[in-house]
């Protein structure tokens, strides 16, 4: 495993019933970069992401994080590894029973012995970064989808994790909000210099922010590299994807 690899995935297999969701994934996720995994909806992207944090156990394969194969860890050891992670869920997964402030403060309260004062400072810092400092008292049900994602991001970052996972961060959002979320991801990554793993089917949006792109198709990584390398790949799936999102203005009319 290379020195700058944050997560090393080796020959990962997962099957639900008769359906092979992951069929031999091999992927190294680079430290301190944004890696975007692109694939069709229902193509196993979320399953792959959940493997990275031990929510799903693979049928076969290895996932190396900081020199440990998390597949083989027991619950307690796994939880130690999980503390290095933050995750933004598809629907943000904010706790309904708490307001915004408590949601963000929750991991700190549970895992650290910080004073309420210190917690307040940390929470306010993160809420300010996602632009929701004034919304601390709101319940999550009172927030719009975009705001929920921003709170989710603040919560994912609160423990200063080494690795942040994003599950479809821009799905179900309108284009304008999507762009602000993308910018927020880029901006926070630039600021904190952590490893980000994003899965998405929004190829255009993600190409804007990705350092590295991996294309997932039929349970395999069919293309990987910088956005430009992937864009120029002659893999059939990649081409299909590119054609599907082709818009004259954005693609510069090259394919007219």
């Amino acid at each position: 495993m290379k020195e700058n690899t944050a997560i090393g995935i080796k020959d990962l297999h997962k099957q639900f019933g008769d359906q092979k969701v992951l069929d031999g994934i091999n992927l190294d996720i680079e430290r301190g970069k944004i890696t975007v995994i692109i694939g069709k909806s229902g193509g196993g992207k979320s399953v792959l992401l959940k493997h990275l944090i031990g929510l799903v156990k693979p049928d076969k394969g290895e996932i190396w994080v900081d020199g440990l194969d998390i597949v083989k860890l027991n619950e307690k050891e796994l939880n130690e590894t999980r503390k290095k992670f933050g995750m933004l869920f598809q629907e943000a997964a904010l706790f309904d029973s708490m307001n915004v402030y408590d949601n963000v403060a929750f991991p700190l309260r549970e895992h650290t012995k910080l004073s309420e004062k210190a917690i307040e400072r940390a929470v306010e810092e993160k809420l300010k970064r996602v632009g929701l400092l004034a919304f601390g008292e709101k319940m999550s049900s009172e927030l719009s989808g975009g705001m929920r994602k921003r709170v989710g991001l603040a919560r994912a970052l609160i423990m200063d994790p080494d690795i942040v996972l994003f599950d479809e961060p821009t799905s179900a959002l309108d284009p304008v909000i999507s762009v602000t979320i993308e910018d927020l991801i880029r901006e926070t990554q630039t600021h904190f210099q952590k490893t980000y793993v994003v899965i998405s089917h929004d190829i255009l949006g993600m190409f804007r922010i990705a350092d590295k792109v991996a294309m997932l198709s039929n349970g395999r990584i069919v293309a990987e590299g910088s956005p430009n390398e992937v864009r120029r790949s002659n893999n059939e799936m990649v081409q299909e994807f590119m054609r599907a999102v082709k818009m004259p203005a954005l693609s510069g009319g090259n394919y007219a």
């Binding site: 869920f89 904010l94 895992h111």
Partner: peptide, 10 residues
Amino acid sequence: EQIDALMVMA
């Protein structure tokens, strides 16, 4: 996924 969120938070 709030239950998953808890698990992710260890």
